[in-house]
Nucleic acid binder design. Structure first.
Lengths: 222, 222
DNA sequence: TAGTTTAGTGTGATTAGGACACGAACCCAT
DNA sequence: ATGGGTTCGTGTCCTAATCACACTAAACTA
């Protein structure tokens, strides 16, 4: 069975940059390629768009297949289409990025991936195709978006402390923030709810636990 | 001659939203379709990506074919890929947008376009495919970008007055601006050069003529 | 030459952002 | 039990950016 066209068609894929915060650093999910070009190299999870499948559905499907994560913030990043970016044939890829909370990581190797793992953004291995460019652009976008939206809340688990949230900002921005100004700013956003609960964690005063008021909603602020 | 693949491939196009300012309004360039689905309907200029052609090259080529304009600000907008957006076959389109100056408009009907014309953004005719969505998103992006970059300078001809530039901002944003604050802001950007020349235009004091310091450069400001 | 029209210019008020220090609560070790 | 260590939680002042606002200048016309 082959599919015939009157003029040449490129293949189209989606790739997903899945970010999380783990062990005090920003990490991306990579899979080790089981075959094809760049065999054994690490690459972004992604794959071919099915002929009746929406682009975002494709990205969501692959995200679910790789990580079991659903219902996350998913945004189109950019479409990469340099003619020689795949040695097999012309492949145009629509890149998305997603943020998954610390507590919902269950990556397992999928069908055509030999292995799967989280890597610190600032010490990535050599990646397949132009995936290093894609990760770099996603990281820039994340950093920019952090400053004028509530996107960072997507990283947070069900309940969390303000200290933990501040740490997330600091890790992504790569610089320390002032505690009181940070809290003032978050209070102004009015997007957190005090659960009334506390977390004792070490030999110090316990911290209040908060939840996100509208999980999944990303507000533009400032 | 046909092209055969082991699995179905979508077609890929680029479409370009070409903005200009004319007659005190924001306009987009549309072409009237000469055949195919939506025959005689107005649509964005665009077409199929050649198999060895970069995406942006494709958009630039079509922009040049339609308008004769080169060297303009061109930016990827979004990729639209709903399965049924084209009735013929699955077509994924990578949308770009471009800003062309008032004095460089030479649109002429191209090969597969029956007619070509400029339309006010706020009174568009019924468009082919999902092109109305594309225009809407491009307009949003333009509006947002205006506030934190020097993108609006791309609309300006070789020499222009500060009053004309302010009018461009007001047209896109849809609200009047304060003259003194506007000029203070532009002065802070430091992206204009006083030519020393003036323009007499009506029974009033003549206005100074400025040029853009680095034409083509779009700086992020604020 | 008086009237009309747009060009060109600065200050003061308000608002937003950034720097900054200390008591509270808990744990642990003595 | 008490003192030391650690993170939690809170408000004020100062600076910088933004916004509102009004008059004179230069040209043309009648």
């Amino acid at each position: 069975m082959t599919y015939n066209y009157k003029f040449p068609h490129p293949a189209v894929t989606t790739d997903v940059v899945i970010f999380t915060i783990d062990e005090d650093s920003l990490k991306v999910l990579l899979v080790r390629r089981g075959h094809g070009p760049f065999e054994d190299r690490w690459a972004l999870p992604g794959g071919f768009v099915e002929i009746d499948e929406d682009l975002e559905s494709c990205a969501l499907r692959e995200l679910a297949e790789e990580t079991g994560v659903t219902g996350v913030f998913l945004e189109q990043l950019y479409t990469f289409g340099a003619p020689q970016r795949d040695p097999r044939e012309r492949v145009i890829t629509v890149a998305y990025y997603a943020l998954v909370p610390i507590d919902r990581l269950h990556p397992r190797p999928a069908s055509d991936a030999r292995d799967v793992g989280w890597f610190c953004c600032d010490s990535l291995p050599a990646l397949a195709f132009d995936h290093a460019d894609i990760v770099r652009m996603a990281q820039q976008r994340l950093c920019a978006k952090l400053q004028y939206s509530t996107i960072a809340l997507q990283f947070m688990p069900g309940r969390f402390t303000l200290g933990e949230l501040q740490r997330v900002y600091e890790i992504i921005l790569g610089e320390p923030l002032d505690k009181r100004n940070f809290r003032k700013r978050l209070r102004a956003y009015d997007c957190l709810v005090d659960t009334g609960q506390q977390r004792r964690n070490g030999n110090h005063r316990p911290a209040r636990l908060y939840t996100v008021k509208e999980p999944g909603a990303v507000r533009i602020v400032r």
